[in-house]
Amino acid sequence: MNGQIECLVCKIGGSIIEGVNPSIIQDLKVLRAQGTKIVLVHGGGDQVTEYAEKLGKKQKFVTSPEGIKSRYTDKETAEIFTMVMSGLLAKKIVRILLSNGINSISLSGLDGGLLSAERKQRLVIIDERGRKVAIEGGYTGKITNVNVGLLSSLFELSLLPVVSPIAVEAGNWNLLNIDGDRACSHIAGALKADVSLYLTDTEGLILNDQVVRRMSTDEAKGALASIGPGMDKKVIASIEAVEMGAGKSVIASGMKENPIQNALAGIGTVISN
């Protein structure tokens, strides 16, 4: 494993046991033994949908004019989102890390003012007639600040922060649903991390049936129009991370043995300047 990694921010899905190879634990232990500062950012949108529907709250999804499908987060959904992400998924991840000797702490973006965001006032969606309509923005946001000092303090305590994709609305203190990939990119950028890593269920960015091994941020921007939904968010986040100060971004498979080790060795799609 590359011993030169001082700081790594890694986005995983909603679980450290499903959708990611269990050997990720070994990777984390090796990196920590080398002194690497690590932040894990988790997702879990599917689990939020599952629990919301168990609670009788049907989830509404909207599609942007660019074709991006996303959850419509009303106030009740924001509460369920927080409950599942921060109350359940993050704790499950911390439990597994702790049981493997990795001392960790879960935080939402609210805790310690870790992630502040600007709430979206309006969303433009495509309605059922195929027309563009502006609707109330709900409780989603765009990250505006990362509390780097808080993360630094946690690193000094040898704690591995596990961050849920929830931000606090600056000034109004609402909880906002934010995209986990972009939470990863903002944290990586703010920490000037060596690597912003996005573990996913593919080998990386696939174009013309081939995994793209390396791309500049400009090349990645140019390719966005031909990248499918889901992966396009990761590519945008990857570009953002580098532009905000991370050394490089890697999109790689979380399903492979030693997924972080492989990603740091460049197996996946590496996006850099």
Partner: peptide, 11 residues
């Protein structure tokens, strides 16, 4: 005038 809404998403 329609507000220019930047693309952004939650989970």
């Amino acid at each position: 005038v329609a507000e220019s809404v930047k693309e952004d998403w939650g989970e």
